[in-house]
């Protein structure tokens, strides 16, 4: 919003979209805020309901039980590992998707982004048929004594599988926005492609990368379906927090609520971190990145799009605009 534009303050009242005309306010229908309020309540009320259910007296004990601590530790460590894997694999992928011009790149992007819209259970099943004992790759690995399913490694693979598109989309958007003119300048200044990538490309898209990594971490932390299918639910090995919550819901609802509170807090921390540490850019990039699960035209259309498959697992990142 241009500084000093008349009505700039008025624009913010009611949270109207901030891309109106020069005068600032594009009027919206009077009924719209009421529907918006319903939408907001749909998100907020369940969260409040969970918090209201918390047994505060028992909370420390519930959270420090052996199974809770094991699940928490496992969730954090696997999510961090999965995020690292997403960065290592996703950065080259995003660069190739953003900068390549060969035919068929659209098809590659479509396939890479499939996990975004695929039900996680199906993803887990697919992983099982790839890395399972009789799977495509798994049966080749078994003679060497390498068995992946139902191990902590399987948890990390499942999380990486579902979280990778978030990082790739976020980073690809940042790369397209940055363009390649700075790399061209670097080349004529004598920088090899590797140096230009290291000293120009990466620093320029760092905010997009951080945003993507944060989203990938959040997605990994919330991963449930694929993990359950591909890695099972072994305490201390594959039973991450969401699995533990699901299990405790049958056995000890208070414990489930306490752990849910923990995840809500972590989600809030991620959101706040994303806004403060990255100046809000991270989460502004998120909806755009997630906006083209169907790879057709490029650059990705900036139109708002359906939220990724399971909104409950994205920790509310999409409603930031």
């Amino acid at each position: 919003m241009s500084a000093g534009a008349p009505g700039a303050d008025a624009t913010r009242l009611g949270g109207a979209p901030r891309h109106g005309g020069p005068s600032g306010v594009a009027p919206f229908p009077r009924w719209l805020p009421f529907v918006a309020a319903v939408g907001a309540l749909l998100v907020v009320v369940p969260l409040v309901a969970v918090v209201a259910r918390v047994d505060w007296a028992q909370l420390p004990a519930l959270l420090t039980s052996e199974s809770s601590l094991a699940a928490l530790w496992l969730s954090l460590s696997t999510s961090i590992a999965a995020t690292a894997a997403c960065i290592v694999l996703g950065v080259p992928l995003a660069v190739v998707l953003a900068r390549s011009t060969f035919r068929g790149i659209a098809a590659v992007r479509a396939l890479v982004l499939v996990p975004l819209v695929l039900p996680p259970v199906v993803g887990g099943l697919a992983l099982l048929y790839a890395f399972g004992r009789r799977g495509l790759i798994g049966q080749a690995l078994e003679p060497f004594g390498i068995v992946i399913p139902f191990t902590t490694l399987a948890v990390v693979i499942a999380q990486t599988f579902v979280a990778l598109p978030f990082l790739v989309l976020s980073l690809e958007g940042a790369l397209r926005t940055a363009g390649d003119r700075h790399e061209l300048v670097a080349a004529t200044l004598g920088a090899s492609p590797s140096r230009a990538f290291r000293t120009v490309t990466l620093p320029l898209v760092l905010p997009g990368l951080a945003s993507g990594a944060l989203l990938a971490f959040a997605r990994s932390l919330g991963e449930f379906g694929a993990t359950l299918t591909f890695a099972g639910s072994l305490e201390g090995v594959t039973r991450t927090l969401p699995l533990e919550i699901y299990l405790q819901r049958e056995v000890d609802p208070d414990a489930a609520v306490a752990l849910s509170l923990l995840l809500i807090v972590i989600a809030l921390v991620v959101v706040v971190l994303g806004r403060n540490a990255l100046g809000g850019g991270a989460f502004r990039a998120a909806p755009r990145a997630a906006s083209s699960p169907v790879p057709s035209s490029r650059p990705p259309a900036p139109a708002p799009a359906p939220a990724p498959a399971r909104a409950d697992e994205t920790h509310g990142a999409e409603d930031e605009r």
Binding site: R181, L184, V185, A186, A187, T188, L189, G190, A191, S192, P193, R195, A196
Partner: peptide
């Protein structure tokens, strides 16, 4: 010869 080995600088 790739750009970075040409010794030619472009002031764009």
């Amino acid at each position: 010869v790739p750009p970075h080995r040409r010794g030619i600088t472009l002031l764009g």
